[in-house]
Nucleic acid binder design. Sequence first.
DNA 1: CATTTGATAAAGGTTTTCTTTGTATCAGTA
DNA 2: TACTGATACAAAGAAAACCTTTATCAAATG
Lengths: 303, 303
Amino acid sequence: MPTTTHLRSLQALELAVRQGSLKGAADVLGITPAAVGQRIRSLEDYLSTDLLLRSRSGLRPTRELEHALTDLHTAFKALERVTETLDFQRTREIHIVADTDWAELWLVPKLADFQEENPNILFCINGIGDVPIRLGTPDLRIFSDDDGGEVLFRDLLVPITGPDNLRRLADWDPVNQMEGLPLLHLKEQIENENCPGWVDWFEKFGHRESGTDRGVHYNNARLALKAVKLNVGFMVCGLSLVLRDLQEGTIVHPFPLSQHLTAAQPYRLRLRSGAEKQPQLQKFVEWLMATAHETKEKLALNL
Amino acid sequence: MPTTTHLRSLQALELAVRQGSLKGAADVLGITPAAVGQRIRSLEDYLSTDLLLRSRSGLRPTRELEHALTDLHTAFKALERVTETLDFQRTREIHIVADTDWAELWLVPKLADFQEENPNILFCINGIGDVPIRLGTPDLRIFSDDDGGEVLFRDLLVPITGPDNLRRLADWDPVNQMEGLPLLHLKEQIENENCPGWVDWFEKFGHRESGTDRGVHYNNARLALKAVKLNVGFMVCGLSLVLRDLQEGTIVHPFPLSQHLTAAQPYRLRLRSGAEKQPQLQKFVEWLMATAHETKEKLALNL
DNA sequence: CATTTGATAAAGGTTTTCTTTGTATCAGTA
DNA sequence: TACTGATACAAAGAAAACCTTTATCAAATG
């Protein structure tokens, strides 16, 4: 009962014949041509028979090999079907459920970098992305709550507005500078005890006394931010979510950043159990932690 | 185009299902059950799906796996055929052509030790053995000539006889002790210039003057040795070939071993080119050199 | 209840396998 | 013919996969 050895050699061999070149096989396998050559040579040595007639312009199986070729193809075609059935490609996907604002304004803009490095990893974030949503536990959950998980960073909440609105401030009441100006609120800031907004900010830093809870309510930060950029008014927003906008000048912070509130909870990352063993998630989490760390440092600089 | 990874895991998986136990698969693969478990677990981790329902009494594939099982079997059955076609089993064989006497009296008796350690390696020595002879170059050639190759040891040639014959010596001519006693010759000793026999021995050490080339001729040492043990007469024989017989007392050397001739050439080992890369030959050559070294030292002790 | 058998876990070591780097060879082209 | 680009080959060191060992645990067996 001969148990097959040199499986990887056989795989390389089969591919090399199919592709007609070591290079071709190497590309498919995602390794170097030299490695493919070594795989095949090692089998040839083991059998002490030549299997491939090599030439620059294409390969040919030797007679020895030719007799085995049909079975060889059969085998690896079958294995490919196994591969598909067992859903190997799932291991190329990452499914994330996260705080909407954070996902839209922090994660997604930065994700392009990661995907450039890892074009084969597909994402599904809050149900949308490269691949359709799946049933079952997502790979990662990222929220600003106290349910545990690894801390990414704790956000700062600061007032922002469109650049044109700065002028209006200057002309205004010298004591209560914000009095009467249009406020934008996030639904969450109103409803959620732990999500500080204008009310808390005015309470702490002054600048306005009346109607601190009045103004337009937005369902999510992305829309509110859009409005801010159109100079609709003033909002209190996670600094981490708008660092780039501030840098680019599409929005401004009318008060010193020292006048900020601190988020009740940091953003935390929770990994589906078992997920830490999957290579694509290892990569992604590593990148995520590093990128979050960058943000954390930028926030610290602005204190 | 998903290229299949974890080939060995899939192999282990397939075998485990077929055998119904990790242990069974391990035995077939020639590795430990723990290793089989690891192979399969690594795939399960990679896919983050269970594939096998383990229990002491048998394994069952999970539903996930069940769908892939047909293809999995197809694949590895096909690979087995490939294996056979490419003649993997040749790599379990060692084909030796060697000096007949050396093979029969030195190699074969010692070979049992090696085969005990390596029960899967099959031998064909001078056309006979576990497997039939093959066309083409044998893996090893071992002869006492000057055609090059690695030296095993140089034999000493000494007179031997059956234990009962010693008494006859004692009663005999005090000067020419061997005069008139029955001599056994090997055909080679007569025909081959470089194969010293009685003629050369008497010439060098005396003990007999007439008819040193007379007596019975044998085609090979094994038969002659058999006759010696039956006290048929006296022969000159390679010491290495009869060390054990001397030790056991089934034969004796009537003269001090210092009265020996030296073989014209040592035994030399020549490996078929390319053979050094085959694992079974590496093992065997290593064993052979070590064992030959032992013999060499025993010969040196007897000088 | 003791024993045996088989699965599991962790640690450590070994072997494979891969990448890197540099060279040689061939086919097509100027 | 010399040049150029693509490919195969070789060797060495690095990385990853793989295996063994040892010990533990649980079910099956006597």
